[in-house]
Structures are given as C-alpha cells and as structure tokens.
Design a protein around this nucleic acid. Sequence first.
DNA 1: GCCACGTCCTTACACATCCG
DNA 2: CGGATGTGTAAGGACGTGGC
Length: 265
Amino acid sequence: MKSHERGDATEAAVIAELKRRCLSVSIPFGDNERYDIVVATPDDRLLRVQIKTGWIRDGTIEFHGKSQHTNSTGNTYTNYEGDVDYFVVYVPDLDSMYLIGESEFGTGMQLRVDDPEQSHETIHWAEEYRFEERWPPRPDGSATADDRPTVERVSEYLRQRDVDFARAVTISEYDLLVDTAETVVRLGVETGWVEDGRIRFHPNSSTDRDSIDWFLVYCAETSQAYLVDPDEFDTSISLRVDDPDTEMPSINWAKEYEFENRWPH
DNA sequence: GCCACGTCCTTACACATCCG
DNA sequence: CGGATGTGTAAGGACGTGGC
C-alpha cells in the first residue's frame, strides 16, 4: 500500500474506532494543522490528536513521533512539541490502538508486545498504552487516575479474592486464565466506566468471542469487576447502577453481573 | 549484550511555482 | 501550456549511541 493510502487508512480506522466508542471527533478544515483530529473528552476538554501508523519490528511496535521535510539543504525533522496533545498509534497488524501523551517521548518510541530476550526496566509494554486502558486522559496529561493498566487492577482484584490465575504473556485472545477445580476459564479483560447511571464498556473488536468464556469488565468508579457472557449481547451491553427514570423490564442490573455473584466457583 | 532512543536515509506522492 | 524543479508530508528501514 502507498504511504499516503496507508496513512489515510490508519486515520479512517482510528476515527471509526473512536466513533464506535461514542466519542466526539472533529476534523480540522484544510491540511495546514499538524494534528489530524480533535477529540472531546467526557469532561468537555478538546484534545489535539495526531494519528500515527505503527508497525511491528522485533517484537516491538515502532512509530515516528516527528514529521520530516526535505529542502535544498537536505532533510529536516520537526517534532510535534506544543502542536499536538496526544498521539493515537494504530497498528494494522494487531488491529489495536494506543494512546501516548506528546510529552511522554521525544522523536520516537517502541512499545514492546513480545517478551524480550533480556528484561529491561525501561521497557514500554504496549499493554500499558492501550487506548482502552488510558482513555479518558487526565487534565494534567497523565493517563488515568490509576495509571496501572486494567489488567493490573483486575489482577489485584482477583488476588484479593484468592483466585489463582495466569496472565497471557503474549498476544492472546484471552487476557487471564483461571484454572478452577473443574475447568479452565478464559477471561477477556475490558475497561468499564459509568455513564448516565450505567456501566458501559466497548468489547475489543479483535476479540474472538469463541476464544473467551467471560468478559471481565473492571470499573474504577465502582471498584468492582463484572462478568458478562459473550453470548449475552450482540454489539454492546450496559449495566444499570442507578435507578432509571422509567422502570423497564429489560434492565441489566449491574449488581447481578458482579464478579462475586456470577463467578462459578 | 540487549535495549530504547535518536538520527539519517530512501521511497512515494501531492501540489505550487518557475520557465521555456 | 506543459515539463522541470522545489516544497511538504508520510511510511518505514538502517544504524549509531548511551544506559542498564
């Protein structure tokens, strides 16, 4: 694919994904801005976002955090300092999206997806930069109130409940594996949030529902994890935490989906 | 030795301007 | 008018450097 087409395809994929998450996306008129889109946060902040294509190399996701210009004197390179707030890196090979603050790196960055041959303290694990882990970003530029990825928070949640589990160390269809007395349960971890009195989450579009047994949705606002069977909904489901304005028979009460109430063992 | 990071380079394309 | 040249943007490969 030609480079411009690839860039356009990346932009289209990211915008489609943001819209699927019901986020407000604006596209600047003309092509004189250094950011690609403007995204509104739930607290009505407008963030300038530059969309980048990432590619896999040696087990890491690479992308360029600078623009290049050629003139009579040769190549010049300009970073986006002050011109954008965040980068959204989309990796077509993984069909995954990552959110990185402009201040978090210089001219480039690598996000590790595979285990390195030698462990390093400075490794940036791709999992920790996943869009769904970091959205919405805090006003001070850091990712979320609790910077740990949802998988980490869920791990702590399960440990507090004496549930033995194993984490997927490579890109797998499932995130956690729980070996119970009778069977092995595969969990796909998702980040939930409270909106209009309901807990919402966007299941990862790349997740093969046949390869997991439960979606384990962790909501920081309620400090609670919820189990949702992949067969219980088609494209989305919301779990009611507050009383609705009008009582309806089809309400999915969050209480009934709480981990303790559904965990089979 | 392995890693993240920075720099340089090539390739590709779009568009504006210059000049014969 | 149309080809040549310059400018600008982007993808992505290669390699050097310094830290751990």
